[in-house]
Design a protein around this nucleic acid. Structure first.
Lengths: 344, 344
DNA sequence: CTGTTAGCGCGTTCAT
DNA sequence: ATGAACGCGCTAACAG
């Protein structure tokens, strides 16, 4: 038995290629390719031979080579800020849902709320030739995002963008802020405290603006002693309560700019023996999954994160395919649960 | 002025290539490549010219082409089950941490606790020629994982694996189960209920085994009426409490097989007007970030998820580089907070 | 219907 | 020190 044509076979255990499949099946590489992609008719006999060879070699086409050749990587970059925050993972779940069975895979990168790092991550995504990028919140400016869209299709949340290959999804955060505050007002509260989000963060500023507007519309005097800073994480919720208590200005309700801070508030309050909602009413913002399971369940302003992720990804694919994005206006919604009650 | 050699330039706005950089800089492609990779000395003049050209064209090397050529994609696949569960995102955070500044990027895939889908996702990762795979929990068998390791380096959590290009990180779940139960026992509890995780899930089974062993060691009779099924999600925690109450067998404490179910338990209990820990003590398993902010904060058995992710990724890179993985034995740890108290 | 061949963008001998 | 040429694995004309 003469040594056959094979050269490097078990040298490096490298994966088989179309060429090897072709040889084993006794056909040319193009025939293999045709069968792989169903791009042209092939005789039944050869099809069978090729499929047998593929199975025998356990062949799996090299997606890298395919991408290089086709000019599409079938990958979309997703820029998040914090992979361990429900705010992002809920949206990510929507993205993942929309990508399922499309052949696209998400390549995720974290910017850690740092504009410089975010820009760096985006460059890396572009270097990897992702077919599009989804930017979930963060500190990049709309101008920067618009510029990126010159190189690759982009969709973003929390921005308003006008560009050919870009699309953004904007939530009316101010309206949400108004809803939260008005809910408290409707319940008879007049001394309403607010724990703000980071000042550089547009969403946070808008929610705060909504708070002020609702107060004003209700003819309630704005008291700056009732407003404390926060950073959107639980800790600042507990710190906020401490600060509020230290200031001594009375209040009967708290509007936290997001759910995570509300969790911190809840804990700090209970530490002080202050009951929710009996002594103090509490409302958050976002409606993270966990808010259903706090005790008592948290009243909040819902943001349809999953759908936002789903639509963002869906529209990115449309843009990539040259189709126009479908319009979508996410609605904030008041979700009344059990942390707020009428002032007696 | 004669039309120069350029053909497609502004036709498709496709990104510039080394060839274009070379032309602009008046050198050959190899020189450009050398400068890009610092793979050989180049005269200062040409280096400058090339760098200028790169800047002028806003050139970014095509990572796809580099990968194809080098035979390394600088990508590691991460198989998770549920991107929106803290259990996974905490681990993912550790993975991300370890990958930062290594040039590797994580390509994440979700198996949704379904062995068939998991296997499918792994195939896709392999097709994309990831340099290694991290498998976080799931329903794949150790045998399957061992087999994958023949094609690509693999590290997994929740398995015991012996293979050249594989490594696994195993937590002593039974010991954790014993710790949780014994803690309750030490507090004087004798009627301890348990909400189990899914039966197919090894971790869940081991925690349950630990529960039984601790009981036995303490000479407490095992009562099957005190054990109810669960699926690791919050809902089954509330269902579990309902079932327990319906069965009528008295109990003074509950050990939930994971924190998420404990959250559900906490809610169900409060709905029934049952106080924690005054009336019933509650302990979970995992120590998810949220457990610090439940009211009161949850007593639980800590699993070092972040470190497990960090070490898993670190060792995967070592295996890829041909280095031996560093040994690591994650320790479960009892974290006593405020949902458990001595039986009076 | 099928095979041959030319790239996709880059890294890397091999000469010079 | 530098350039020419080949090939990574695959798809897509272009002949037959």
């Amino acid at each position: 038995m003469k040594t056959s044509v094979r050269s490097r076979r078990d040298e490096k255990a490298s994966s088989p290629t179309v060429l090897e499949v072709a040889k084993v099946a006794g056909v040319s590489v193009s025939t293999v390719s045709r069968i792989l992609n169903g791009t042209a008719r092939v005789s039944e006999a050869k099809r069978q031979a090729v499929e047998d060879a593929i199975a025998a070699l356990d062949f799996e086409p090299n997606a890298l080579a395919q991408s290089l050749k086709r000019g599409r990587s079938m990958t979309v970059g997703v820029l998040t800020q914090d992979v361990s925050s429900s705010y992002f993972t809920e949206t990510l779940k929507g993205v993942e849902h929309a990508l399922t069975d499309t052949g696209y895979a998400p390549l995720i990168a974290s910017g850690h709320w740092n504009a410089e790092e975010e820009a760096h991550r985006v460059r890396l995504l572009i270097a990897r030739r992702v077919d599009g990028i989804i930017i979930l919140s963060g500190n990049l400016t709309s101008a920067q995002i618009t510029q990126y869209s010159g190189q690759v299709p982009v969709v973003a949340t929390g921005h308003r963008i006008e560009a050919p290959k870009a699309w953004a999804i904007e939530l009316d955060n101010e309206r949400g802020g108004v809803m939260a505050t008005r809910h408290l007002l409707d319940l008879g509260h007049r001394r309403i405290a607010h724990i703000r989000g980071p000042e550089e963060h547009a969403d946070a500023e808008q929610r705060f603006a909504g708070y002020r507007r609702a107060l004003e519309e209700a003819g309630v005097q704005y008291d700056e002693r009732l407003v404390v800073p926060g950073d959107f994480y639980e800790t600042s919720g507990v710190l906020g309560v401490a600060e509020l208590l230290a200031r001594g200005a009375p209040f009967t309700a708290i509007f936290a700019a997001n759910d995570q801070m509300a969790y911190g508030v809840r804990l700090a309050l209970s530490r002080q023996g202050i009951r929710v909602p009996d002594d103090i009413s509490l409302i958050g913002f976002d409606d993270l999954p966990g808010s259903l399971y706090t005790t008592p369940p948290l009243t909040t302003v819902r943001q349809p994160l999953f759908d936002m992720g789903r639509i963002a990804a869906g529209n990115l694919l449309r843009i990539i395919d040259g189709d126009p994005p479908e319009p979508f206006a996410p609605e904030v919604e008041l979700v009344v649960r059990e942390t707020t009650r009428r002032l007696r």
